[in-house]
Structures are given as structure tokens and as C-alpha cells.
Amino acid sequence: MSGRCKVPVAVVAGTIVGVGGSQVAFAYELFDGCHYVTPTLKWKPALKSQTYLDEAQATAWAWTSTSTPISLTQASSGANVTLASGNWGSTEHDGYMRMNDGGPWYCGASGHWDQGTIAWLNTYYTDGYSSTKKKSVWVHEVGHSLGLAHSGEGAACSVIPIMAPETSDRYGRCSKSTPQTDDVNGINFLY
């Protein structure tokens, strides 16, 4: 299982699709297929400083404006997704997705998240990032919240998804900060 490309097999709507090479990415790879029950979602900010609010709103809009059913509306209560920023230290991760209880992801019995999720920016790194680079990390983490796994690492920039796992790759090499075709296909498969 080592190497730049993940296993070149995706399970899509009950069909096994074998695909080779690095030209195709796989945002279809799911966390057990786990996702929210509805694509109509509320989000709230929980920010280290208000300087991150513009990026949080831009992140919500980046998903809402895709050709998918996803709608993320800012709300002060009942949020499904929290966009949070805080200092996790020098963990070499600039973003994390966590469940509301702080734990890593796990799926409810119904195949859906049974609690809210938190899309974190690690300010140890992101305080030094441009607005667009922050958004690249946050859109990626919210992709996890919506149910997408990593995919497309090292893919050509023309097809690399926002779910590529490394910021140096997704943003540094390919300047991606919004959902790409493969991400949109993944979401439309899930919702």
C-alpha cells in the first residue's frame, strides 16, 4: 500500500471500476460511506481570532457554490460543521477534521455522522498562510466533514482534487483552493 498513488480501484454505486495511472483521482473513496443525512447544513465559526472569519465564510461558500446539493449556511446554533482555528503545535498537519467530541472520525450505526464535525486549521502553520492557502486547507477539511476521503495525491494539476492530502501538493504545486471535478463527483455520489 505504499507509493504515491492509492489503490487504483474505486467502488462506485456498486460497480468496481479499475483505473490505472495518476490521471484519475478517487474522491469516491469513502469513510465507510459515512456522511451527513442531509446536504442542507449549518456551520458556525469557532476562531482563534476574527482574522480567520473571511476565510471561513469563503470556505462555506466554496462548497455551497458547487454543482452539488451541498448548502452550508452560517448559524449561531445547531451547527453541523464547525470551522475552528487553534494552535495544535508543530505536528506537520495544518488541518484536522474531528468529531464534536474531539475524537477522530467514526460513523454512526445508520451510516451517517451521529454528531457534528469540526474542520480545524492548525494556526501554528496557518498564521503564516495567505488567505487562499488557508482556504485550501479548510475546503479540504470540510470535504472530510462532508464524507470525502483523501484521493489524488500526486495527480496532474488538471485533475488533482481538493482532497489531495498534502498542502504542498494540492496548493503549493497546483494552487487549488476550491472543490474540483473529482470532489464534486464524490459529493454527488454521496448526496
Partner: peptide, 25 residues
Amino acid sequence: VTAFMLTWFVRPPADDTATGSRVSA
């Protein structure tokens, strides 16, 4: 094929690298 698909869907929760964004590698 069914067994393969089941293992694909029910693989255990991955570690944090599954949901973190790595700065680089």
C-alpha cells in the same frame, strides 16, 4: 467480489492521517 466490497466499506477507522491535511511529506 462481494467480500472485497465489504472489506472496502467496513475497513476500520484510519489514523489521523486519514483526515488531517499534511503540510508536506
